[in-house]
Amino acid sequence: MKTSDYQQGRNIIAGVSLVIASFVILRTLFQFSDYLIPGMSYLYNLYSGNIAPNVITVILFDFRGYDTLGETFILITAVITTTIVFGWGSLKGYKKKETPEMTEKSTVIQRLMAFPLAIFLVAFGVTIVLGGHISPGGGFPGGAVIATGYFLTVVIYGLKKTPLRFTHRYLVNLSTIGALIFLLTGVLGLVATTYYYGTGYYLYNTGVDPYDIIHVGAFGWDNLLDYPDPTHPGILPYLNIGVGLNVLAGLSLIAMFLMEARKDE
């Protein structure tokens, strides 16, 4: 067989390169700890306290906030791609179809506890989202927890009878709102710094104003961008809120699509 010879040759090449790559990677990582330096982490730790207590959130949403924008958008891209894979209309069918196997499998205890637990997870997720600048957490973990709550009810009660009845359109709207909060907060920083300073900075933290560019407090509307909280973290919680909405909607949508598609076999 010609194809199997070809396959075999390819396997041998793949195996040899795999062995070489494994050797190089393992050896490099074995030596790696001798070369480590604090680098920029030291600088971030040095200055982050000016903005919010949680250094990692400050890096994620302030120093490298633009990366986080990209991160938000890769989730949106994945959601849209999943939509394209299955087709926009593939979720319409579930209202007509009976999906008995889901509800029959779940026991009484599951059915009794799933909904309260889901509400608990939602509330817990919101707490994580809103506490991102003080304690470990933020928009991504919080949104993931909320989506877990939604998915729990879907697994126990089925997509048709679930008490948390998110529709496709609603989730798309939520993720649009979340992403727009992030994007437009950045544009607002750009516009405000251009207006007061002549040159603009995208995603400038207008609420904290660490470089004293727009003189927070001198004008009434500036204070709107400072989150009402004793730590005064500026725009970070707003970005967290937007990301949280986006992530909960995105992950729920992906889960919905993967769940529906499985039944279509």
Binding site: Y201, Y204, N205, Y211
Partner: peptide
């Protein structure tokens, strides 16, 4: 363009 306005330090 310096994102978030963080200058060279």
């Amino acid at each position: 363009h310096l994102f978030s306005g963080h200058l060279r330090t």
